[in-house]
């Protein structure tokens, strides 16, 4: 099995990692960087649990080869750390947006990119924007409310940095 060397910045830390060519970004993060907050729920790109940010945009880490990430900046749930992330977490907790916690990482990352766009959104738009993430526990009501509130907060304070 051939290997490739990947230079990738993960949550602000530059890393150089040699992996088998077939290794996914998810496996690189979980097995090699030991960041296990990125979860694998289907490995077919449907459930969204493995969503991470790559150069600021959400991607499925299960459908992204580590080799394709050379030179990229990757942010995982463990690396979300600013006012938007804080507000998201707060609302997730008070709105009942999580139960088992398995989908939560992907929901947060997806929601984070959404609120960082600073676009006004109603409930339906938020629901559509989260449609690529499956939660089996909460029935989504709390997740949608939480993301919408975090979005409203972000729009109101305008502290995008």
């Amino acid at each position: 099995m051939s290997t490739v060397t990947v230079k990738v910045n993960v949550n602000g830390t530059p890393r150089t990692i040699e992996v088998e060519s077939r290794t996914s970004l998810a496996d690189l993060l979980r097995d090699r960087v030991r960041l296990t907050g990125t979860h694998l729920g289907c490995e077919q790109g449907v459930c969204g649990s493995c969503t991470v940010l790559m150069d600021g945009l959400p991607v499925r880490s299960c459908l992204t080869l580590a080799a394709s990430c050379d030179g990229a900046e990757v942010v995982t749930v463990e690396g979300l750390d600013d006012a938007d992330a804080h507000r998201l977490r707060q609302h997730f907790s008070t709105e009942g947006a999580l139960q088992c916690g398995f989908c939560t990482s992907g929901m947060l990352v997806t929601g984070y990119e959404l609120v960082r766009r600073r676009t006004e959104m109603d409930r339906d738009q938020v629901a559509c924007a989260l449609a690529g993430n499956i939660c089996r526990c909460t029935g989504y009501n709390g997740i949608i409310r939480a993301v919408q509130k975090a979005n409203d907060d972000g729009m109101a304070v305008d502290d995008l940095t």
């Binding site: 995982t76 749930v77 977490r89 907790s93 999580l98 916690g101 990482s105």
Partner: peptide, 8 residues
């Protein structure tokens, strides 16, 4: 919630 919201 705390641990799950931080991927822990």
């Amino acid at each position: 919630d705390e641990r799950h919201l931080h991927g822990r």
